[in-house]
Computed example of a mutant assay.
Amino acid sequence: MFRPYVLLARLDRPIGWWLLFWPCAWGVALAGGAFARFDLILWMLLGAVAMRGAGCVYNDIVDRDLDAQVERTRGRPLASGAVSLRAAWAWLLLLCAIGFAVLLKLPLIAQGVAVASLVFVAAYPFMKRITWWPQAWLGIVFSWGALVGWAAVAREVSAPMLLLYAGTIAWVIGYDTIYALQDREDDALIGVRSSALRLGRHVRAGVAGFYAVALALWSVAVWIVRPDPLAFVALVPAAIHLAWQVIALEPEDGADALDKFRSNRFAGLLVFLACATVGTGAS
C-alpha cells in the first residue's frame, strides 16, 4: 500500500537527500555552528529528506510521459500507473508540509533565503527540454542549502556564503553529469538534453573542470573565514576523493557511473569535516 509512495519520493534511495543535505550542513559548519548548532543540522536533515522527496514527486508529475519512454524510469509509480496523479499531488503537499514545519525552525533571514529557492525548484523539471545544461539548474537548486545554512548561523549574507554556494553548484554539475551518463542513449532518442550528451567524449575532462572550480571556490571561502594556509589542508581529503572519481570513471559503463555518483555522499562528508574544522577554528 505504502510502497509506491516510498518509491515515488525515492525514500528508498537516500543518496538524493544526502546530496541535498550536505550543502546545508556545510553552510552551518563554515559559519561556526557545526557543534554549537547541531540541533539545526538535524532539522535540516529532516528538511532535506522531506523536500528531496517532494522534489522527486513534483519532477515525476511533470515528467510522467517522458519517464514512460526511458528504460530506467518507465517503472516509476506515476509512469507505470501504480500511483494516480491526484494521489501524487496529495503526497507532494504532505511532504511540503513537513518541509514548512522545518522552515519555521529557522531564523527569519534563513526563512527568506529558503523560500527564494522555490521559483528555481519549480522550473527545474523543464530545463532538460530547453537547455543542454539542466545540471547547472540542478546545481542552483541542490546547492541552495549552503545559503540557508550559513544565513541560519551567521544571520547575514557575505562573501564566504556566496563562494561556498558557487563552488557547490560546480560540484553538483560535475556529479550530475556523471549520473546522466546512464541515460545518454535514451535521452538522445527522445530528445532530452544533458551535459553528458553535450560534453560527449570530453565528459571526463568536463567533470574534472567542474570539480576543480568547486575546490577553487571552496578554498577562497575557507581562506576568508580563516586566513591560515593550514586551513587549506582541511580540503585535501575531499580533493583526493574527487580526483579519484574522475580518474577511475568509466563513461561507457552505466553501473560505474552510478557508483561514482553515489560516492559523492562520502565527498559531502569530507567537505563537511573541512568546513567544521575551519569554522570551529575561526570562531
Rank of each mutant, 00 (worst) to 15 (best):
P77S: 13
G99Y: 13
F142H: 08
L138D: 08
A114T: 07
A114F: 04
D67W: 06
I173L: 14
V153W: 08
Y179C: 02
R76A: 04
T168V: 04
V70W: 00
L118Y: 09
A166S: 13
L162H: 06
V113E: 12
D67L: 11
A87H: 13
N59V: 02
W132E: 06
Y165C: 00
R74S: 08
V115C: 09
A110Y: 08
P160G: 02
D60A: 12
K105M: 13
L164S: 02
G149I: 05
P107M: 11
A122S: 11
L66G: 01
A82M: 11
T131G: 02
W91T: 04
R129H: 01
S158V: 02
V70G: 03
D65E: 14
R74P: 00
A97C: 10
L94F: 12
I130S: 00
A97P: 00
L104H: 07
W132M: 10
A116F: 14
W144S: 13
F142L: 13
Y165V: 03
D63S: 03
W132A: 14
Y179E: 09
Y58L: 15
V121E: 09
A110W: 11
S158C: 13
A82Q: 13
P125V: 14
A151G: 05
L78H: 04
P160C: 03
G55K: 06
L106V: 02
W144Y: 07
Y165M: 00
Y165H: 09
A68C: 05
F120I: 06
V57H: 05
K128A: 01
V148N: 07
W171P: 00
I98V: 15
D183I: 02
A110M: 01
T73M: 10
A159C: 04
